[in-house]
Amino acid sequence: MADFWEKTRDSFAGWRLIGLPFGFGFLLLLTPLLLMVLLSFWTQDYLDLRRDFTLANYREVFTHPVFFTLIKRSLAIALVVTLVTVLLAFPVAYFISFYGGKRKTLLLFLITIPFWTSYLLRIFLWKIILGYNGVINSGLSSLNLIDAPLSFILYNSNAVVLALSHAWAPFAILPIFVSLEKIDRSLLEAGRDLGDSAYRSFFFITLPLAMPGIIAATLIVFIPTIGDYVTPKLVGGTEGLMVANMIQVQFAKANNAPLGASLALVSLCIVMLIALIFLFLNRKYLGRRV
C-alpha cells in the first residue's frame, strides 16, 4: 500500500513538471497534425471546403504523374545527399578524432565557421558558383577552356544534391566525431594486441562502435533534406523541384489545402518509415549497451 502511494506521488510529481511542455506539444503539434489528417480527407471546391470523407486527394497524389515524380525525386535526392554527406563526413570526423591531437576543438571550430551565416545565403552562394556567369563558368571561359557556359551544373538535381550535401556537412561530422571519441582506445589496443592489422582493427572495432554516430548522422541529414524547400527553389530549376515546393504551391497559389495536406502526409509517412528503419538499426547497435 505504501508502495502504491509512493508511486502515485512520484507519478503526480512527474506530471506536474512535464504537464506544461506536454500540453504545448499536444495543443500545437499533435492537434494540428490530426487536423491535417482530417483535412486531407476533405476536398477544396473553389473557395469552399467540402467536408465529405473522400480518398480523392490520395488517389490524385498516387496517380497524377507530377506528384508521384516529385515524391520519388525527393526520396532519391534525400537518399543520395545522405549517402554522400555521411560518406564524406566520416573520414573528416575520423581524422579529427584520431589525429586531431590538441587541436581537436580548433578543427571542429574550423569545420563550423562556414555555417555561421544564413542558411538561405549558403544555398544561394552555390547559385553564384554554379550559375551561367558564375564562378566556375566565368573562370573556365576566361581560361578559354569552354566557349559557352556549362548549363548542366545549375538548375537540376545535381545542383540540389551538391548544395544540400554542403549545407548539412557539420551535422553529419559532429555525431560521428562524438561516437568516435567515445571509443575506449584500449579496445583498439586490445585488438592490436590480439593480432589485428590496421584494416581489421578499423572494420571490426572502430566501424561497429561508431555505428550509433553514423546512424544518427544519417537521420539528422535525411529528415530535413527530404522536406527541404529552399534548395530546390533556389538551385533546382524545374527539374530539381521537390515535394515541399509542391506542398507550398497547393497551400498558396493553387489554393488546394486538402491536396497539400495529403501530399504532406504521404511525405511524412515516408520519413517515418525510413526513420523507423534507422531507429531499429540504432537499437540493434546501441540498445543493448549500457
Binding site: 584500449s186 586490445a190 572495432i205 561497429p208 549497451r289
Partner: peptide
Amino acid sequence: QSYAIFPH
C-alpha cells in the same frame, strides 16, 4: 586495466 571487453 579497464578489461577492454568489446561492447559489440
